[in-house]
Structures are given as C-alpha cells and as structure tokens.
Simulated scan of single mutants.
Amino acid sequence: MTEINSRKIAIIGCGFVGSACAFALMQSGLFSEMVLIDSNNQRAEGEALDISHGLPFSKPMQIYSGTYDDITDAGIIAITAGAGQKPGESRLELVHKNVEIFKSIIPEISKRNYKGILLIVSNPVDIMTYTALKLSGLPSNQVFGSGTVLDTARLKYLLGEHLGVDARSVHAFILGEHGDSEIAAFSSANVSGIELKKFCDFACKTDKHEEAMKEIAEDVKLSAYEIIKKKGATYYGIAMSVRRICEAIILDQKSILPISCLQSGKNGIENVVLSMPMIVGKHGAERSVEISLSEEERQAIKSSADMLKGIIKTLDLD
C-alpha cells in the first residue's frame, strides 16, 4: 500500500476556484508538495508555473501539473472541478452536469486505491459530496465537503460589521444546505460568550433585532449570487475556506467547522449530506458536535435535508 504523505495535496480542477485554492495553499506553508490536475493539462501547467514563481516570497514547495497517477500518496485531494454557476442559476441547477463530471473523476481516484481525504469543493457541494461518497466507497470521515464554512464566515463578517466588533469574536453557524435552504442558527450565536441579542441590545441600541438578523441571514444567502452577477464567479472566499479546512486537518487542530458530511440520525436526519458542526482533525471529519438549536431551526434543517434527499433520488449512483 502506498504510504500517505500528509504534506502533499492534489487539486483536481484548475478553474477560478481551483487556481485560487492553489494560490491560497501555496501561501499557507501547510504543504511541501502540490499537484494540479485538469482536463486541460495546458491550463494546469500554466497555473503551476504562475504560482511557482511566487515561491521565493513564500516557503519552499514543489508545485507541478500531473495526472491521476500522481495522487496516490496525497494526504488530501481537493476536488473543485465542475461547471461554474452562471448568473441567476442556483447551485442545485448544476447537479446533473457535475454529477456526470464526478462519474469520470472519482473512479480514476478509486482505481489507484486512494486512502487519504477527499475534500469536495465543487457545487452543489452537498450533492457532490454524497456522489463522491457513493462512488468512492471511502469511509464518511474521509469524504466531506467545504459545506457552509464560507457561508459561516460571511455571517460572522456581516454580524461583526453590524455589531462593530472583530468578526473573529463572533461565534455563529450557517447550517444545512450550502444554498437556498441554509439556516442561520441564531439561537446559539454569541459574541465572546455573550448571547447575540444581549450584545446587540448593548451595542446596537435598536429594538429591531429580529428584523436585522433576518436581513443579515438573507444577505449571506444571496452573497454568491451578488458576487457572480458583478464579477462572474466567486473564488477568493472559498479558497480561504479550503485553506482553513486543510489547516485543521494537517495541524490536527480539532477545529469545529460546519463541513458537509454524511448525517447518521441526529436531529432525525440520515442518509443525506449537509453541513453541521464537526470536529476536524488529522482523521478528517472526526465527530459531530451538538449545539443548541431552537425547534424552528431544527425543523428548518430537516426541511433542508428532505429537499436534498429529493434531489438525490433523481441521481443514478448505483
């Protein structure tokens, strides 16, 4: 069996998202080797060369374009390949196009008896993670998606702006689907241990807290559409999210992140992939974390799961 090199990452897909992830990971210093793979090998070669030229300003690293034969010893494979989301198109409208693309990618990985971690970034990430799980046969702790890590960062950023505090002091999650049915779990949100509403009463001096929170949650949900409308694609935010997830894995940080992973019965949800808080470390999605949710939030997450299950039923994954 090929020994896994935890300091090697493979990125499959060198479009806007894949190349931004490669750039962010080069700067991170987490890896000593990175292989870029794309159906357009010239594109992969160009990205590898361009990013490599910045290495004198970063840390020593081997960056090159390659083939599936180069993935066998990678600690992490990040899959960003797929059709991009067009203006006005929902993430779920990408489903069938990208499932077909995964049907050509995942078997190539399986053929090499890969034993590392598959980090799915392609949209719609929940469905694509489920697809990768079914096609790869790998354990669910080793196959998970970037989920709502970016949505959660957007929520923290907007709450920080609203409250006038450092976004890193805001603790809150977006849960469920990475998409239109996602849920802002405000019932457990806090600012350095202070309940969100109490902090807002002190900092904002407004009696319209509920309306402000609904507006912020809606802004988070619409963020990607707004960015796509203005510049055609989103890639910097997700690249930083991928870097954060990789950091938790490579440094075995046991970080609690809302990654997209297989649900196994908690909150009445199973056999579907969506985002809930998980401890992320060197073994991948190591275990789930129970957080306080209102009954309304629980029902909303269950509705999100039911919607995703309905999509899964339309896929031919057997």
Rank of each mutant, 00 (worst) to 15 (best):
4 I>P: 09
6 S>L: 15
11 I>D: 01
20 A>E: 04
22 A>C: 12
24 A>D: 04
25 L>G: 00
35 V>H: 01
35 V>K: 02
35 V>G: 01
36 L>P: 00
36 L>F: 04
46 G>P: 06
47 E>F: 11
47 E>A: 12
49 L>Q: 14
57 F>K: 15
59 K>T: 14
64 Y>C: 12
65 S>L: 14
66 G>D: 13
66 G>Y: 12
67 T>A: 07
73 D>E: 11
83 A>Q: 12
84 G>W: 14
89 E>I: 08
91 R>I: 09
91 R>C: 10
101 I>P: 00
102 F>C: 01
111 K>I: 13
113 N>T: 11
115 K>N: 13
116 G>W: 02
116 G>A: 06
124 P>R: 10
126 D>P: 00
127 I>P: 02
129 T>V: 05
132 A>H: 09
136 S>N: 12
148 T>Q: 08
148 T>K: 06
152 T>Y: 04
153 A>P: 03
156 K>E: 05
159 L>A: 02
160 G>C: 01
167 A>E: 15
172 A>K: 01
175 L>E: 00
175 L>G: 01
177 E>Y: 00
178 H>L: 07
180 D>Y: 06
183 I>T: 04
185 A>H: 05
198 K>L: 12
201 D>G: 09
204 C>R: 11
209 H>A: 11
213 M>V: 08
214 K>I: 03
216 I>M: 01
216 I>S: 01
222 L>S: 04
223 S>C: 11
227 I>P: 02
231 K>P: 02
235 Y>S: 10
242 V>T: 07
250 I>N: 09
255 S>V: 15
258 P>M: 09
267 N>P: 01
268 G>L: 05
270 E>V: 09
280 V>S: 03
280 V>F: 11
280 V>Q: 06
281 G>A: 13
286 E>L: 13
293 L>Y: 04
293 L>N: 00
296 E>L: 04
298 R>H: 10
299 Q>Y: 09
300 A>F: 08
304 S>Q: 05
305 A>Y: 07
306 D>H: 14
308 L>H: 10
308 L>Q: 11
313 K>R: 13
316 D>Q: 10
317 L>V: 10
